[in-house]
C-alpha cells in the first residue's frame, strides 16, 4: 500500500498575526524640539534669576527659550541688554515710542530714549520649568 508522505508545506514558522491596522499611520512620537526650538541656530537658553516676572508666569530659576531671529513686537516678553546686563521685560511699542513694562504695579513704564545703552537680545518664546 502506497502510503503518501504527508505534505509539509513549510517548516519555517512565520509570525503572521493580523497586520496592525494602524501600521500605515505610524508617526514619530512627540518631540519637544518641534515645540520649543523653531529656529535651532538662533535659539539660546538663559536662566531667569528673581521673581519680578511672576505675573507673566516666569519664576525664579525658569529656563527662558529665547529666539534671536524674531523681530520683537508690542507685548512680547523680551530679554534685553541694558546697562551691561541681561534683563527680562514686556516690550511696549506704540508708533515711534518704545518702552519696557516692568510687570509690577509699583513701577512706571520705562521709556527708551537712548538706544546706546540698550538693545534687544531676543524674544522669549517659551519658558521651561521642571517640577521634580
Amino acid at each position: 500500500m502506497d502510503k503518501q508522505a504527508p505534505t509539509v508545506l513549510m517548516e519555517i514558522p512565520i509570525k503572521c498575526g493580523f497586520p496592525s491596522p494602524a501600521a500605515d499611520s505610524r508617526e514619530n512620537p512627540l518631540d519637544f524640539n518641534d515645540l520649543l526650538l523653531k529656529h535651532k541656530a538662533s535659539t539660546y537658553c538663559l536662566k531667569a534669576s528673581g521673581d519680578s516676572l511672576e505675573k507673566s508666569g516666569i519664576f525664579d530659576g525658569d529656563i527662558l527659550v529665547v529666539d534671536k531671529s524674531l523681530n520683537a513686537k508690542n507685548n512680547d516678553l523680551v530679554v534685553a541688554e541694558y546697562e551691561g546686563e541681561f534683563t527680562a521685560k514686556r516690550l511696549k511699542v506704540s508708533g515711534e515710542n518704545v518702552s519696557l513694562h516692568p510687570e509690577n504695579n509699583d513701577f512706571d513704564d520705562i521709556e527708551i530714549t537712548n538706544f546706546d545703552n540698550f538693545s534687544i537680545f531676543g524674544v522669549i518664546t517659551a519658558v521651561v520649568r521642571t517640577l521634580r
Partner: peptide, 22 residues
C-alpha cells in the same frame, strides 16, 4: 559653556525693577 551645558546658562536679571531712564 553657555550653549552646551544646562548648568552653565547665562543669568537674566529679574530681581530689581530698573527705575532709571534708559
Amino acid at each position: 559653556c553657555y550653549t552646551t551645558k544646562w548648568q552653565d546658562l547665562a543669568s537674566v536679571n529679574c530681581k530689581k525693577n530698573t527705575k532709571e531712564k534708559i
